[in-house]
Structures are given as structure tokens and as C-alpha cells.
Design a protein around this nucleic acid. Structure first.
Lengths: 254, 254
DNA sequence: GTTGACAGGTTGTTATGACATGCTAATGTG
DNA sequence: CACATTAGCATGTCATAACAACCTGTCAAC
């Protein structure tokens, strides 16, 4: 990768954002616009980056390591560090629906079908997603219909623990991205997710909402999302319309 | 976590296995047997581990970081490092089928339906899993029926690039774990996978092989697996029987 | 022409040291 | 007793330093 030597972005040492994080952001941004062919060439070496940005090598390595963890680059001893080549495209269903659809250049939509508060999780959820002790307290329940370019894509039931989000009220769901609200008001962000995916057939209600035929094949995904500190963020059941693919990108093996 | 002070495992400095990796293995092993309740307690602090194993703090942190990347622990500033609590159980379909089923205490089985060599990937595969330039050379194709406790679970079609595995012959597939063979003979291991999962209906052939009814709902998974150096390891299409859940565990968000 | 040794550059590993930041529990004060 | 302060300990960040392990291209020797 060729890095422009003039007007290169600099690391702000006064910022409260760590230097390695700033460097990772800069590199991620530069990598994002590369073509597949350009990804064959190595990034600047750790020594070069160290000199160019006035950082120690350990800090540069920390930045590269964080990109490697995200699956954006890999390092090869004796050769250098290289960008990876994206292998699939589409919607994962694991990140923010709104953000993900928009990044694909499509228009996301969301219709709230119901909101309420319940004392504990439904049995159907706890069967699929085992609940650790003390995790089955009061929950806020949210039922949404997800749309892409106006077409109904999925029915989503989400349960959020009131213990983690005090004062969260059904009224908060009226507009905007739910994840953004939770990040802004409680400073909590999803870090990991565990999911179960199984095949199903559309019943009367599902076929009506998704505008498909009864007994059409659908995907049913059960998902529990946790924060970096392993606290349950939300539990979700999603039913996806036929023809829709769920993407699982950059899943780490081993 | 309480660590036994007597007969504690030691780090072998003469080994060619890095110290941080040895420590990570020791900790992983200790964590694996903890109950959910025990996972509420912090691991020994970085300073303690540093003194106990005679390693610098940076090395201890490297070990903890590798466990964090695998989703086994998390660290909280000012409090300590903690094991995470597993949230789902089941078969992911992403790792070695043989190993994963066995770990669940069940008996895996595999019937080879066909093996052959083809000049390029079928169009159905390249449609779902885009192919970078130079990646569509000769392939070894393998079709297997997967069994758990004798019950047919999935039909798997795998394509492995001959460029990456010279001298790989259909005869090699006769017995044992395919992943083990590839690791032993070419020193290559899968590191990441990208997948697309979609709903489908069983056609005549699928229903016959999986012993289900025609038009039963099935999961169809398209998967490309790459090595740590981002080289395509294999491409797989799997068709799973109804009632079988695909597990996606510890998927990193953000 | 092929092979081998080698130089130079790259990432991998590890140590020591320092300071910043955040959490917890004990302490002290009202 | 209730509450604010603080000391101590935890992880987070970053620098400097050194050597190991590995890859590639060059060039000499065969």
C-alpha cells in the first residue's frame, strides 16, 4: 500500500483516544478503499509506521493486532502485514440492522409492532438460550418488523434486561437506532454474540406480516448479545423471509 | 479462581512454544473446568501471574489477550480479569465436524458419496461466495453425508484448491478427519470462515439422503474457510436436516 | 543452470520501567 | 451511623531495548 507522505494524518497525543486506536482507525480507513489487487501488497512495515507516526513499535503492533482481531489484516513473519480480501457480502443480522442496511446502499425501515414489560423471559427463549442465575429478572420486550427498501425482511422479538438499563421505557423505542440510544445513555455496547439458527415454516401470522405464503421456508435465529464485560445486553428471536441470506463474516476458528 | 500453589505447572523456557502461549494453555485448561458460579471470581492478577510463573507482565498480558480474543476471558480496568460464561451449546458446523460432535459426547459418522477433480468451481458456488482473481483453478471435490449417532444430519459438498494442497488425491479422503490430514501434511489450519445461511426445502435427492420428507424445511449454508494468511482453504455447501440448529458462538461484533 | 551461503529486512518474543486510569474497601470525619 | 476521602491495587497505555525466527533476493561456487 502506498501511503501519501504529504498531509498524512497525525496522531493527537492530547486526545483521550489512545494512540494505537487512532492509528488503527487511520489504517482501517486507508485499507477500506483498496481494491482486491492492491491488497496483495504489504502495508508499511512496523518500523516505517513507527517512524512515520512517531510511535514506538509496541504501539504500532498494538494497532495492527487490533485490526488482525477484527479480521482486516494479517501478519506474516519475515514478509510483512497485509490486508485481507473480503469473501462475502450481505446482511449479517448481528450488528445494527439500520447501520448495516445503509452501508449496503439500501434503505432500512422499522415498524414497532408491540412494546411491553415482562417479569421474566418466555420459556421459548430460555430453552434455546440457557440463562445463568440471576439473569432472568424483569425485561423490556420489543417486537419489530424490519424492512429493506419497503420490503418486510424479518420479525424481531427483543428482550432487554431492566437490570442493565434502568429507566429504559417502551417509549424510548419510538425512533432512531436502538443501539445508538443504549450506547449514548448507558455507555454500553455489544461486543460478542452467540446464536442458534434453525429452519422453520411460516405460520399464519408470520406469512401475513412478511407477506409470504404459509409454509414458506424461513430462517429462525435465536441470539444473545453480551457486552465486553460479559453482561447480557439483549436476547433476540428473528424470523427471516425466504430468499434472505444471513451472513456470518469473519468468524474465528480454533 | 483459586490456583493450587503446589505442583503448579511451570513454563518451559527451553521449549519452542512461546511462554505466553504456554501460559494461555495452562489458564485455558484451568478455566475450562470452572462452574458458572466460580466464573464470577477474578483470575489471579497480572502481577500475581507474573511473579508465580516468572514472566514479565507484558508476557502475562499477551497470554490474557489471546484468551480474550478467543472469547474465554475479559478484563476490567481496576477490577481484574474474569472468565466468561458460555451462552449456547450445540454444533457450530464451522469447526471439525468429527471433533465437535465427539466433544458433545455423541458419535460422529461420515459416508463419502463421491470424490472427483474439477477444473473450476461450479457457478452455484461462485455466485454465493465471490472468487478473487486466480482463485478459481483446479479443485478437489468431496461429497459427504454427515451422521450423528447414525442419524443423517447433513449433506456436505467441499471444494479444496489443488494450488494450496499439491498431491491431494481423492484417495486421501478414505478415513479420518480431513482437517487433521491437511494440518499434518501441509501444515495448514483454518483460521477464519465467512458464511451465508439461507432457508430451503428438501428436494427428492436431499429427502432420500437425509431420510426426511420432500419439502421439509432445511438449512443451506455456504461457507468459505481461509488460513491465518487469508488463503482459501476450502469452500463448502452444507444442507442440514430440519430440527438441527446451527450454532454461532462467540462472534465478535463491532 | 542449479545450489548454497549470506545479507538485509520483516515480524515474533520478552524484559524493564513508568505513568495514567479506574475500582474497591478501609479510613476518617461529620 | 452515614457519607466523603483516600490508599492500595487492578488493568490500560506507551517507551526503549534486545535478540530470535523467518523470508526474499543476490551473488558466488559448483
Amino acid at each position: 500500500m502506498t501511503v501519501e507522505t504529504k498531509e498524512r494524518q497525525a496522531i493527537r497525543r492530547s486526545s483521550n483516544v489512545p494512540a494505537y486506536s487512532q492509528l488503527a482507525d487511520i489504517l482501517e480507513q486507508q485499507i477500506a478503499v483498496l481494491t482486491d489487487a492492491e491488497r496483495q501488497r504489504a502495508l508499511p512495515s512496523e518500523g516505517d509506521l513507527s517512524r512515520q507516526y512517531g510511535l514506538s513499535r509496541i504501539t504500532v503492533r498494538q494497532a495492527l493486532k487490533s485490526l488482525e482481531t477484527k479480521g482486516l489484516v494479517y501478519s506474516a513473519q519475515g514478509r510483512g502485514s497485509f490486508p485481507t480480501v473480503p469473501r462475502v457480502k450481505g446482511i449479517s443480522g448481528f450488528h445494527s440492522f439500520t447501520a448495516e442496511v445503509r452501508r449496503n446502499g439500501q434503505e432500512p425501515g422499522s415498524v414497532i409492532l408491540a412494546t411491553d414489560e415482562v417479569d421474566g423471559l418466555p420459556a421459548s427463549v430460555t430453552e434455546k438460550l440457557p440463562v445463568a442465575e440471576g439473569e432472568n429478572g424483569p425485561q423490556v420486550h420489543l417486537r419489530r418488523l424490519r424492512l429493506i427498501d419497503g420490503l418486510p425482511i424479518a420479525i424481531e422479538d427483543a428482550w432487554l434486561p431492566k437490570a442493565l438499563f434502568p429507566d429504559l421505557a417502551p417509549a424510548d423505542f419510538s425512533d432512531g437506532s436502538l443501539y445508538s440510544l443504549l450506547a449514548d445513555r448507558w455507555g454500553l455496547e455489544p461486543a460478542w454474540t452467540d446464536a442458534l439458527i434453525e429452519p422453520g415454516l411460516a405460520n399464519a401470522e408470520v406469512s401475513r406480516l412478511l407477506k409470504i405464503a404459509e409454509d414458506d421456508p424461513v430462517l429462525v435465529a435465536w441470539r444473545v448479545t453480551v457486552t465486553a464485560e460479559d453482561k447480557v445486553f439483549e436476547r433476540v428471536r428473528s424470523i427471516y423471509r425466504p430468499g434472505f441470506s444471513l451472513r456470518v463474516a469473519r468468524y474465528r476458528l480454533g
